[in-house]
Amino acid sequence: MLLKVVQLYKNETDLIKKATKNNREAQHYLFVTYSPKMLSICRQYINDIHYAEDVMISGFSKVFTHLKSFKFEGSFEGWIRKIMVRECISFLRTRKKMTFIEESPQNYKEIAIDAVASLEVDEIQQLIDELPEGYRTVFVMQAIEGYSHKEIAEFLQISEGTSKSQLFKARKMLKENFLKRNTQRNGTK
């Protein structure tokens, strides 16, 4: 088992090195390996699957162009993921859909939405899609991608307080939308 893992790692390193030298086969293999995962990430940020795919393709293009700057210090997947997130944010910025209202830090009460977790992924995605761009971006980055408020603030060029408030509002809206959906489905108030 250990041997297999070592061999796999070695293979990926060789693949990346080959892809760095513009080896199309290696690049294609890396694309096939990571594109489904990356498209899922792009879809978290972007409502339209076609736009999400365009952004993912654009992200992969950057991955292969800047492959030389990958120093094999962290995981390759994490490196690609960061590029994809940046690409998504850049896309949302160009479409001017993402707006943030700067707010001073407050003690936001954390909203428990355990019930949401019981839903299927597609259902959760639908709920997330209903959120405004700003709320959704911060929620995905913090709750799903695991970025800290400091990192989010740097990424989105906003203050940490704004990031926190956006997350609070996103959670609140997510819960409200979930309850609304449940009410409609069950036919009860």
């Binding site: 489904p36 498209l39 393709i57 909203i111 355990d114 949401v116 799903i144």
Partner: peptide, 28 residues
């Protein structure tokens, strides 16, 4: 409860795969 919720969502999304369209590689 909140942590549990986030972990559950993370797990669900991390295991999600969306296959790109057939001509995605050609476009790239």
């Amino acid at each position: 409860a909140l942590n549990n919720f986030e972990e559950q969502i993370k797990e669900k999304f991390s295991s999600r795969m969306i296959e790109p369209s057939e001509n995605a590689w050609e476009l790239l």
